[in-house]
Amino acid sequence: MQPAKDTLAWMYEKMVTSRRFENAIEKIYMEGKSPVFNMADGPIPGEMHLSDGQEPVAVGVCAHLNPEDVVTATHRPHHQAIAKGVDLKKMAAEIFGKATGLSGGRGGHMHIFDADVNFACSGIIAQGMGPAAGAALSRQIQGKPGVAVSFIGEGAANQGAFHEAMNLAAVWKLPMVVVVEDNAWGISVSKEASTAIQRNSDRAAAYGIPGHYIPGNDPMKIYEVAGEAIARARRGEGPTLIEVETYRLAGHFMGDAEGYRPDGEKDGLFEKDPIPAMRAKLLADGNFTEAELDALEDKAQAAVDEAIGFARESADPKPEDALTAVFA
């Protein structure tokens, strides 16, 4: 199943939006953090986990989702949020800790929540999976449309929550899809050193559900496999586990010296950067002209510029607002 042209355009635009957004965040994050890097300084304090390189997973999956579908994301959520349709301006403002942010600055970059498009996060590894199973259960009990997709990293497959949520989803045949973004590194520990089997998708056998492994960070292949899995969930046939080989072009967090990477690994990664690769493919297939792709990139950049400007110009929350919204 190849995506239609408008879907391809959407996928490319969202990948570029995510990359340009993170490029902007990366630059602003370093403001006030040199010559001495102190995470607490600058317009964006705190940890910052960039998803550069992992954009194909987000767009290949979310191309099949509607606003009513549920996504739970991780500590590295920007690409998934953008692909799910989270309000970019409010997300930027949240990352800056501004009053106009999605949560008024209470959550920050690891806690992106947008009820309008059913998007939620947890900064703790694998802990978005239980809530995704619960959202899927909610739809099943109420007979309401919608599937739940839980994005996790490959390191999350070694968490107890992974097993518990997978089993629950399978035993109750929940409309859920779990997407493992295998970027090969759990901070500094390689998948080889942390994980007893080569492919986490093989773990699907333990739950009697389909498991798919997608090599090559290929947005077209991700689109195809995710489409089948999501359609299956919508038909009420239960969950699917998908693992995608992807790449983290940045460190685990900004400030990560990445001394654990073998020499030259990142050079090789940049050669495989999925965004130029997708551009080249779209041109080679003859579906798009240079001008069309340039226009998509311009549109993405304009959205990013608008969001970053909005975040910069927004006011800080009132300090005493820290004491509100604990309870509904």
């Binding site: 239980g130 199973a133 009990i141 518990e164």
Partner: peptide, 10 residues
């Protein structure tokens, strides 16, 4: 962990 997490999502 599975079903209390699921309750949160529901």
């Amino acid at each position: 962990t599975g079903f209390i997490g699921a309750a949160v999502g529901a």
